[in-house]
């Protein structure tokens, strides 16, 4: 199964890097929770314990992610005109044993972004996912731990 999960995450990364957003949305359950806590300059334990009290950087449903991606199709979303060149590297994948058709998957990402001739930034973090298997794998929960306390513009999904 580890191999299957690895291929799934690589496929998902390919969809996002290639702008195949409709296909990416097809990987999400309708009751998806997708969120990213904001980081804080605190002692490690305190930062973790209180992450739920802070204002998240993402707090999304499938509907709100659909809106985010639909917005990009209007031709007026300047943060993505022209679209940012992205390349994401997914690594350190750990998949727990499947229970009740749900697998917990942790993975690291490094996302290179390039736009406007010479603006280049890297976004790094970790994702904790719950994927469920029906006739195909679907993402039902994703928590993204972004490793930056102060962020550059985040106009892409991870």
């Amino acid at each position: 199964m580890a191999n299957e999960i690895e291929r799934l995450l690589y496929h998902e990364a390919h969809l996002l890097d290639s702008g195949l957003f409709a296909q990416w949305l097809d990987l999400l359950t309708t009751d998806l929770r997708y969120w990213a806590p904001a980081r804080a300059e605190l002692f490690r334990q305190e930062e973790r314990e209180r992450e739920g009290e802070r204002l998240p950087l993402f707090d999304e449903t499938k509907a709100s992610l659909t809106l985010r991606l639909t917005r990009l199709q209007t031709g007026l979303a300047w943060a993505e005109i022209p679209a940012t060149r992205t390349r994401r590297f997914i690594s350190n994948i750990i998949a727990d044993d499947e229970s009740n058709g749900v697998v917990f998957v942790r993975s690291n990402f490094m996302l290179f972004k390039s736009r406007s001739f010479a603006d280049e930034t890297i976004l790094v973090g970790c994702r904790e996912d719950k994927w469920s298997r029906s006739d195909k794998w679907l993402l039902r929960e994703r928590k993204i731990l972004i490793d930056h306390c102060t962020l550059e513009n985040v106009s892409v999904l991870v």
Partner: peptide, 18 residues
């Protein structure tokens, strides 16, 4: 606020770019 006016916000992104 997260969806519109955070560093990932749909309004903020375009402001930050411009």
């Amino acid at each position: 606020v997260t969806r519109m006016f955070s560093p990932t916000g749909m309004l903020e992104q375009d402001d930050l770019e411009v």
